[in-house]
Simulated assay, not measured.
Amino acid sequence: MAAMTERKRFQILVCDGPSCGITHESETLVEHIEGRLDKEAALQGRAECAALTCFGRCDEGPNLMIRELAPGEDGSTEPDFDLLYGVRGLYLGVDQAKVDRVLDSHVAKDEAVEAWVESYE
């Protein structure tokens, strides 16, 4: 019998800086994401959500990033920024509908939403 391949796990980072957190109310997106991660079979165990201080793209917020977690890595805390540079998983100006599509594609199927995703520089 072939060994099962372990599914990728992701960290969903939602900006909670002054612009995204206050002006764009990113906390409501976090609540929505966490609700879906808890309830939907396709997402359970696939991702953890955490706040990120700022992506530096405030005018385009609210912003989030999906990044693959290393085996055993805790996805519930903000990572070192060095781990983010060059990661192709940044989504700018998201709303609940965009978040849903990102979760359904990037997290559930490991397929980035090419029309919206960019690398973090």
Rank of each mutant, 00 (worst) to 15 (best):
A3E: 14
M4E: 15
T5A: 15
T5S: 15
E6G: 07
R7F: 09
R7W: 03
R7T: 04
F10W: 14
F10C: 12
F10M: 10
F10Q: 11
Q11I: 08
I12E: 10
V14R: 12
V14T: 10
C15W: 03
C15R: 07
D16E: 14
P18F: 00
S19Q: 09
C20H: 06
G21E: 03
G21V: 10
G21H: 04
T23K: 14
H24I: 00
E25M: 03
E25H: 14
E27N: 09
L29P: 15
V30W: 07
V30A: 06
E31V: 01
H32N: 02
I33N: 14
E34Y: 00
G35P: 09
A41E: 15
A41L: 14
A41W: 10
L43V: 06
Q44R: 12
G45T: 07
G45L: 07
G45H: 04
G45I: 05
R46H: 04
R46G: 11
A47C: 05
C49P: 08
A51P: 00
L52C: 10
T53G: 00
C54G: 12
C54L: 13
G56D: 12
D59S: 09
D59W: 00
E60H: 05
G61A: 09
P62K: 01
N63E: 01
N63H: 01
M65F: 04
M65W: 05
M65T: 05
L69Q: 12
A70H: 03
P71Y: 14
P71I: 10
E73F: 10
D74Q: 04
D74P: 14
D74Y: 01
G75P: 07
S76C: 02
S76V: 06
T77V: 14
P79H: 02
D82P: 01
D82N: 13
L83Q: 13
L83P: 00
L84R: 08
G86Q: 04
G86A: 01
R88Q: 11
R88S: 06
R88Y: 02
G89C: 07
G89T: 06
L92C: 07
D95I: 05
Q96G: 09
A97S: 14
K98I: 15
V99S: 09
V99Q: 12
D100I: 02
R101L: 11
R101N: 05
V102C: 07
L103M: 03
L103Q: 01
D104C: 01
D104T: 15
D104P: 08
D104Y: 04
S105C: 08
H106Q: 13
K109G: 00
D110Q: 04
D110R: 05
E111F: 03
E111L: 11
V113S: 06
V113E: 08
A115N: 01
A115V: 03
E118P: 14
